[in-house]
Nucleic acid binder design. Structure first.
Lengths: 158, 158
DNA sequence: TCCAATTTTAGATTTAGTCTAAGAATGTGG
DNA sequence: CCACATTCTTAGACTAAATCTAAAATTGGA
């Protein structure tokens, strides 16, 4: 119905990454829920619906998926890394106040300027992250609690 | 001789951040050594030359400095955050293989595209990180060990 | 089918970073 | 110059993130 099965099948085939049930589940969850989840959240969510997989397996699967480009890590200062399916390209916006991560429409970098700055280096990927205040926080809605799990660190109550 | 004292004095004055000896030492070290150091490295380095400051103080100082914009955190997936003086603008390049972080010359984002993508959000800062293979790793020099401290995580021997 | 390589697993371990409560330093108004 | 409130630092305990280990399970191919 959902086509996800086929989509993932293709993705695995394309990258040559061995498709284990565990990797499949992790990727499927990430594709379905476009949240920027931590490894811990994925661990809990996937285990809630399916068979159990261990924490180490979640990390292994995530790393394998990152390695082959199907998943992208979003590192956050002072907090657990979050993960993101790359099946559609996009950039990120991180709110200074509440720490929420939002997707932005993709746009290109000026190729020339980038090449010049990169010099002789081989560039595989470009990561653009905007920082600022999200609309909810700007409006002063204090209820906005984007990371229902342990929101460790900086974020001021918001 | 070095003008750093005055430069920092100005920086503190400009941002209104209280200049404590500890914050000064942390910032001074970051300005002098343009490495992208972890909190732990800073802790060790600063204590090597000067009086002792506690780990908590290093974190406190770093957060205060980040808050007031004098220092920028560089989050890295699966590893300790690194820190960077912002006294000159630049972008980053992170090597997939060895994990090294290099500075790139500053270049601007196409303002229109960015505004369009950001929508109504208030953008404070733009962070551009290129990922790929650094020149040393490309040349296959296996000696390249950029993070002499605990290089935890992904990096293949390189 | 059998073997070698890969993957998963549970649990222990390491490391990053925060928290707490108490004490020190600082700045301000009188 | 003093008193008081505020801010900052500190050590160490604590929490959480992520890795590591060694053993068991699964897989793909000859």
């Amino acid at each position: 119905m959902d086509g996800i099965r086929e989509k993932l099948q293709k993705a695995f085939a394309r990258t040559g990454l061995r498709r284990t049930p565990q990797r499949h589940d992790v990727l499927a969850w990430l594709v379905r829920h476009k949240r920027h989840a931590t490894a811990e959240e994925i661990y809990e969510a996937v285990n809630r619906s399916n068979q159990r997989l261990s924490r180490a397996t979640v990390y292994n699967a995530l790393h394998a998926l990152v390695e082959s480009g199907l998943v992208r890590p979003v590192a956050v200062e002072g907090a657990a890394s979050r993960f993101d399916s790359t099946l559609d390209r996009h950039h990120h916006f991180i709110c200074d106040r509440c720490g929420d991560i939002e997707d932005l429409a993709w746009f290109d970098l000026p190729g020339k300027a980038m090449q010049a700055a990169a010099g002789g280096r081989a560039v595989r990927d470009v990561e653009i992250t905007l920082h600022g205040t999200c609309e909810r926080c700007a409006r002063g809605k204090t209820k906005h609690t984007p990371n229902p799990s342990k929101t460790r660190g900086e974020q001021k109550a918001c």
